[in-house]
Structure formats: C-alpha cells, structure tokens
Design a protein around this nucleic acid. Sequence first.
DNA 1: TCAAACGGTCGAGTCGGTTCATAAGAGGGG
DNA 2: CCCCTCTTATGAACCGACTCGACCGTTTGA
Lengths: 323, 323
Amino acid sequence: MNRLDRLTAILIHLQTKRVVRAQELADRFSISLRTVYRDVRSLEEAGVPIGAEAGVGYFLTDYHLPPVSFTNAEASALLLAGKLIEKWADKSIRTEFESALYKIKSVLKQPDQEHLNELDELMHVSRPEIRQPYSDTLLTTIQRAIAQQYILDIIYHSSYNDAESRREVEPVGLYHYSMAWHLIAYCRIRQDYRDFRVDRIRELSDTGQQFARHERLSLQQYLNQIKARFDRPSAVVTVVFEKAIVRHLHEQKYIWGFLGEEDLGDRVRIQLSTPYIDGLARWLLSYGKFVTVEEPELLVEKMRALVNEVRHHYRQPTLIDVD
Amino acid sequence: MNRLDRLTAILIHLQTKRVVRAQELADRFSISLRTVYRDVRSLEEAGVPIGAEAGVGYFLTDYHLPPVSFTNAEASALLLAGKLIEKWADKSIRTEFESALYKIKSVLKQPDQEHLNELDELMHVSRPEIRQPYSDTLLTTIQRAIAQQYILDIIYHSSYNDAESRREVEPVGLYHYSMAWHLIAYCRIRQDYRDFRVDRIRELSDTGQQFARHERLSLQQYLNQIKARFDRPSAVVTVVFEKAIVRHLHEQKYIWGFLGEEDLGDRVRIQLSTPYIDGLARWLLSYGKFVTVEEPELLVEKMRALVNEVRHHYRQPTLIDVD
DNA sequence: TCAAACGGTCGAGTCGGTTCATAAGAGGGG
DNA sequence: CCCCTCTTATGAACCGACTCGACCGTTTGA
C-alpha cells in the first residue's frame, strides 16, 4: 500500500473513532508499531491536530478550525511584504513566506486572485548589492533556536580579522540594521554578548542543548545597553547654508538633530544639536563653500583640521609635502 | 521537501490560478517535469478533480479545500516580514499586514501561538534614518489604483525645486529603491513617465476614472528603459577605505551603487557605480584621509577641486592665503 | 507497576527522482 | 493544408534517498 494512501486512511480512521491505539493501526495496515509512530508524526507535521496520551491512544482535537479569509487589501499588503522579503531575507524565509502567500491566495475569491496576480507584476524591489545573494537557509533555524532557547554551534567569518572561528552561542535575538540581519548572541567562549552578521555565518547547527534565557539580557536590554554606551551629551551648533542647497538636506538635517531655521534671504541659518560633533564636521565638509559654521568655535577648528587633513591627503603627488 | 507537503502545496498552487503549467510547478519546487506529471497523477488518483489540456496547462474543476492552516515556520516567516514592513512600508500597509497576521495567529495551535509571541520580542529592525516616519496611508490606495487602472490626482513635493505641484497621473507600478517606495506613473500634463517618491506625495486621491494600461509601458519596460538611459553615464569608481571606517558606511555605500569589496588587510577596496560623480566626490570628501580614490582620474581631480574649495572657504581670517 | 506513547540506530530494499527519448493534442502561421 | 511550437504525457534506465522493520531503551499517565 502506498504511504500517501495509508496516511489518509489513518486520518479517516482517526475521524471515525474517539480514541485509537497505535497497535490497532499497526494491525489494520500490517505495519510495525514503529512505523505507526512515524506516520502519526508525519500527520502532525502536516498540520493535523492529533492528540496523544500514554496509556490511552490517539484522538483528533478540534479539527474544525475557524475558516480564515483575507480581504483584498490584506492580501495586497502581504504581496508587497513578499516583494521586500524576496530581497531582504534568506532563502528559508523566502520559501516559507511564499508558501504562506500561496495558501492565502488560494482562499481568495476569483476576482481578488486575479487582482493579486496582476499586482504581482506591477511591484518591484531593487536591491543594489551584488553581494552574495541571501541563499543561505539560516534564518528559520535561528528563529527556532531563539524562541526555544537552543544553543547554536556556528562557524563565523569575522570581517575584523578576516578569520573563521567556531563557537557555541546562546541566541538572544535577531536584529536588522545596516541592510543585514544580525544575530545577537551570548558567546560562551568569550563570556560576552556578540553581534554576528547572519550572512557571514558560514555554518550553523543546532546543538539541541538548551540554555536559560533568564540568565541573559533580553534583546531589548541588549539594544538599550548598546544605545546607552553611545549616548553622549549633545552640542548645539549654528551653521548657515546657501539657500540653493537647503532643499538637498531634507532628511539628513534630522540625523544631526535639526532644531530650527531662520531665513536670511539667499541663505538660511540652521541650528543643530548632536553628540557626534566629529561626524557632523565631516558631513558639513561635504557641502564645501555652501555652508559656513558660526558656532561653536570648536566646530570651526574641527573643520579647519579636516581641511588640513584632506589637503595633505589629496596633495599633488609630484609635489613634496613638507608637513 | 516532503513529498506529502509538496502534493498539498501543488494543490494549493492550483487553486490560486485558473491554469498552471507543469513547468511552473517544476520551477517552484525545483523538481523535474517528469516528477510533476507523476505528482499530478498521484493527486488525481487521490480523488482531486484536475483537468489537463495539452498546450494550455492544468486547472482545477470545482474543488473545495479544507480551511487553510499555517505551519510554525510559515508564521515565523510572516512575523519576520512584519518586522521589516513595520519600517519599510507606510501605515496603511502596516495596518493591513497586522490584521492579516492576527488572523493567521488565531488559527495556529496554542503552542505555536506561544512560540510566535515569544519570537515577537526577539526580533527587531532598526531604521537608521530619522526621516518623517512612514505615517501616510498611500500605499494601499496606490496599489488599488495600479491594479485597477485608476487615474490618480496627486500633490507632489518635488525636491528638485522645493515646490509643490498638482497633477493627474496614470500609475504604472511601485518600485522600491534607495530605501524608499517610488510610484512610477505617466504624467498627463508632462506627457511622460515620472518617478514620484511616495513619501513626498503630500496628497493623493483616486479620481475614479480609468485609463488603458496597454497604451503605457509596463513597469518592467519602464525599468529597462531607465536602466538603459542611466547605464551609460554611470561611472565605475574604485576607492580604498581604512577598515576602521568601513563599518560606518552602513547603507550609504548602497546609495552610491556598491558593487563589491576586496579585503586588503587593514584596508578595503570598494567598487561603486554611480552617475552622480559630483555628489560622490562630496560624500568621499567627508571621509578625509580615511579614503583614497584610485580610479577614475576624473574623480581624483574633482576631489582636488573640492579640497581647494574648502581650503579657501575655511582659511584663517587673519592669514593671507597665498594660493 | 503496567501499558502505552516515544526516540535512536542500522541494514535491506523499495520508491522517488533525474535524464533522455518519444508520442500526441492544441493552436498559430504561411 | 502542412509545419512549427508549446504543452501534457509515457516509458526506460539508472542512482540515491527514504521508508520500513527489528531491537534497544526512555518517558508518561493511570
């Protein structure tokens, strides 16, 4: 008998009786007990809600789940999400997402399905990088390990010293920044928290051993700690931009803590507030003569220092620099 | 992938489209055509009413699937997608996505629900830019207009001349690049295709009038055209960064068309490709001595010109610059 | 303490999958 | 009308992976 047929037959058998012993199924299909256990496991993995109790047997638990249906807008949102996921997650996540999306599509009404199929070709996400396409299948494994507190054994290629190292880590969370997913984990060797870029993890395996999460920082705590470490007092600075280029600032000025602006005719006086005075100086440098620093004097000095720096750096190679 | 899972997935796939070609299934599950034929045969033998027509494909004749249920892995993938969506899409999409995710959660088994709730707090996405948070509710409206070919009436804030303009456009598609969603549309006033950054659309309303898409380029055609137009002037540049700095580049290198990098020990050679050579030069200037331009010579000259510019701009007021 | 559900491992053997060759039906173009 | 293309469909040969049974032990609830 076909395995597929047998599985459906077992399902039907379970539906006809309140409780069924594994031995009963083994006899009915003349298979071993071991195989029954494996079949039941397969059905469970396929989503059939089978309950089991030692000393009693198998039984089906509420097979009548409420039918879900999705609106057109929900499906469209999921489709858009899928477009992003296609580029921003690895293969394992892509596959699972796709599978879910197909399921959702399948319960839509015919016109909505067509609407969605049309929309599918009218949205596109560009991923500028050529970087090795996220072809790994790590994210789902990591997700499971994080939620179920499994220790992971990873081989990591560090960009810091360009070397591979192997370590056992206790995963704390997944964090996405700088266009990449990062695994935050407690490294048992270094006895500290580490930040692993997922696309630099060469190999990963689940050791099966569990750890106690409560002994570790939560993801939120870790992020707060990182944030606190980089928190410094801010300085208020005043700069004057040529009006012609003010419109190019737009989002960027908020990064440097935009406080307010004052119209000076063909120029605009802008106040900013940031703890990263050096970074600000470098940013202002890129606006060249179109920006003038008024305050503080410290920033002006930093600007001059930078000018000196680039002046030496970009000197004509034919001239001897006396420095 | 499990054969059992594949068969159900094929069944679901068949429900999402009117006709499905065997090749499509073969591609999706990366199996051979031969295997698709055998799988379809298996489904037919299991009682699924699949119709087949040579030269056309497979289709399902009235079949009602039992209510969908989602696997743990699928739900986890959706959750991860939701984390990205939270930061990369506007409020309308977020709302719809959340609503769908909630429905999906509700049909999960209890342990899976708990698994998901735990995972929810262990994943996080950082959006580095402070830019006005995507609070608009435009994307779903745009999606609907695109798919149903409705003319849109938009008020757009152009960064080019820092002015608002109102126009009627025929939406062609949504395209995501440079960290933002862009509406590609045919502007009826300018009689040409335009690229509107969705977060710069101040107001948007659906006129209710339809247009004929077949008269316009498809999104794919438009993208190809754009690519062709910008492929030529785009210059490939090679720069070498100090390794200590590389991690601060974050997303920015992608804005300048990051192509790839080569490890040089304590430095990293990076290749970029951009048509905006002047902007690139100003950006590179802010990295001072920590970046060295290798190619092209044109860029080196631009850097020197900028250095001269800032040198005059930041000269000591008390000293006379002999130039 | 019993009875039942579970899990690991290992060897034999089947069956699932690929590749290649071929047939055959539907539609389009000249 | 024939020919070409696209598609479903079948057969044969070959190989690897998976299924299954046997035996062991562990866990769990009554």
